[in-house]
């Protein structure tokens, strides 16, 4: 598979990364270099092989339903680039 300029623009959009038009072409080259190298995985017959779900051999841990945290609005907001009355503030979102 070869990555084209439109693919790069599309995934940059999906990943919410502003990509200057001048960087699209070089990125196409870099990604194709990497994906060509990754192509070698196609040599392997993976038919019937289950994808790895976890290397950890144990049951999923579960917690009890008790309130142990969360009442810390000041600490939560301390790193916020923009906040007001304990709300995070962002440019208006139109629904």
């Amino acid at each position: 598979m070869t990555v084209g300029k439109d693919d790069v623009r599309k995934i940059a959009k999906l990943a919410r990364l502003a990509l200057d038009e001048s960087r699209v072409e070089p990125m196409v080259g870099e990604l194709n270099g990497i994906f060509q190298w990754v192509e070698q995985l196609n040599e392997v017959n993976v038919e019937g092989v289950p994808p790895l779900t976890s290397v950890v051999e144990q049951r999923l841990k579960m917690r009890d339903d008790v309130v142990t945290e969360g009442d810390a609005a000041n600490a939560l907001m301390a790193n916020a680039p923009s906040g007001e009355d304990h709300f995070f503030v962002v440019p208006k979102v139109v629904e």
Partner: peptide
């Protein structure tokens, strides 16, 4: 009482961001 993946409370109508774990 608490959220699906954290120990923060779930009560309705609490003041903003007062029931939020990290």
């Amino acid at each position: 009482n608490s959220k699906l993946f954290s120990g923060a409370a779930t009560a309705f109508g609490a003041s903003p961001n007062s029931q939020v774990s990290f």
